[in-house]
Design a protein around this nucleic acid. Structure first.
Length: 307
DNA sequence: TATGCGTGGGT
DNA sequence: TACCCAAGCAT
C-alpha cells in the first residue's frame, strides 16, 4: 500500500489541461443540458434507476412517455413489486428488449425484500440487482446519490476516444485502458465528479455523436485530439450490423406484442398467425417461456407471466 | 470474449 | 431506400 498524501501547499493536483477539460465541459453542460425529468432535483433514486434501465439501448425520445407512465403507476419499488411481472412487461410496451422489464420487476422485489424498499446507495449493492451492470450501477450511484464514479457508457467512450485519445471511434468492446482513462479524468471533488459524469455523457449524446458530430458546437473543438490529428478515419474491424429480417428476435417481438395487447390469455392458434414458419415460431415461443416472458397455461393458452 | 436480445427514427 | 444505431446486460 502506498498511501497518497495530499500536498501541504496548494500545488495543482493535476495537470492544467485536465482542469481546462472539466471547466469547458461543465460550462457547456450548464448552458445546453436537456431538461429531462429524471434529472429534476426532486426525482427519486427509483426514478433514476428506472430511467437508466429504460435507456439501455433505447433512445431518450422513446423512453420519456414510458418513464412518465411507469413512475405514475409505480412511484416506489414496492408498488411494482406488488404486481405480477407480466404487468411490467405490458407497461414496457415497445421499448424493446423486454427482458429488461422482467429484470426491473425482479430488482423491485429485491429492493423491497433486501433493502427495505429503498434503492441501495452503494455501487456493490446496486450491481447485485437484476439488470444492473457496471454502467447502470455507476450511473445510479452518481446521478441519484451524487457519488464519485467513472460512468462509462457508449457516449463517454466516444468522447474520450475522440477528444483525448484521438481515435474516430472507441474499441469494439470496453477495454481496461478506457476504464483507466475514465478514472484518471474524474474530478477529485465528489459533487464535481457527479456533474462531470452526466456532462460528458450529454456532450456525447448531443454534440460528439456517432454519425455526424457537430464539432462546430463543441466546447473542445480546439483541443480535440481527433480534430487536431486531422480527423483520421476509423481504423479497425467494421462493426457487424444487427441482423433483423427473419431472425428469432423479430419473431419473439411479434409473439410478445400479441400477448401485450391482449387483456387475457391467448390461444395458440392466434400466436400461430404471427409467423408462418412453425418450427421457428415454436422455438421462439419456447425461448420466451424459458426467459420467463411468457407463461403457458394448462389449457394450452399463453399469457404474460403471473408470477 | 462474442453473441443474442426489440424497436423505430434518422440519414 | 437500406442501413445505422440508441444511457447495456447476461451468459
Amino acid at each position: 500500500m502506498t498511501p497518497r498524501r495530499a500536498p501541504a501547499t496548494p500545488t495543482p493536483t493535476r495537470p492544467a489541461p485536465v482542469a481546462d477539460l472539466h471547466e469547458r465541459v461543465l460550462t457547456w453542460y450548464d448552458a445546453h443540458a436537456r431538461d429531462l425529468p429524471w434529472r429534476a432535483p426532486g426525482c427519486s433514486p427509483w426514478g433514476v434507476l428506472v430511467s437508466e434501465v429504460m435507456l439501455q439501448q433505447t433512445p431518450v425520445a422513446r423512453v420519456l412517455p414510458r418513464w412518465e407512465a411507469w413512475l405514475a403507476r409505480w412511484p416506489a419499488p414496492g408498488d411494482l413489486a406488488a404486481e405480477p411481472p407480466g404487468e411490467a412487461v405490458r407497461m414496457w410496451d415497445r421499448l424493446g428488449y423486454p427482458r429488461r422489464a422482467l429484470r426491473l420487476h425482479a430488482a423491485a422485489v429485491a429492493i423491497r425484500d433486501e433493502h427495505g424498499g429503498r434503492v441501495p446507495d452503494d455501487h456493490a449493492r446496486l450491481l447485485a440487482l437484476p439488470g444492473v451492470g457496471t454502467y447502470t450501477a455507476a450511473a445510479v450511484a452518481s446521478f441519484a446519490f451524487g457519488q464519485r464514479h467513472a460512468v462509462v457508457d457508449t457516449n463517454v467512450r466516444r468522447v474520450h476516444a475522440r477528444a483525448v485519445t484521438g481515435a474516430a471511434e472507441p474499441a469494439a468492446a470496453l477495454t481496461a485502458a478506457e476504464n483507466r482513462l475514465a478514472v484518471e479524468l474524474l474530478p477529485e471533488d465528489e459533487g464535481t465528479a457527479a456533474r462531470w459524469a452526466v456532462a460528458v455523457m450529454e456532450l456525447g449524446a448531443l454534440v460528439c455523436t456517432a454519425r455526424a458530430p457537430r464539432c462546430d458546437a463543441c466546447p473542445l473543438l480546439d483541443r480535440c485530439a481527433w480534430v487536431l490529428a486531422g480527423r483520421p478515419a476509423h481504423t479497425g474491424p467494421v462493426r457487424r450490423g444487427q441482423a433483423w429480417a427473419g431472425t428469432d428476435r423479430q419473431v419473439r417481438g411479434k409473439l410478445l406484442a400479441v400477448l401485450r395487447e391482449s387483456a387475457g390469455p391467448v390461444e395458440a392458434a392466434v400466436l400461430a398467425g404471427c409467423w408462418a414458419d412453425a418450427a421457428q415460431r415454436e422455438r421462439c415461443l419456447d425461448g420466451l417461456v424459458a426467459d420467463g416472458l411468457v407463461e403457458p397455461l394448462d389449457d394450452g393458452r399463453f399469457t404474460l407471466p403471473r408470477s
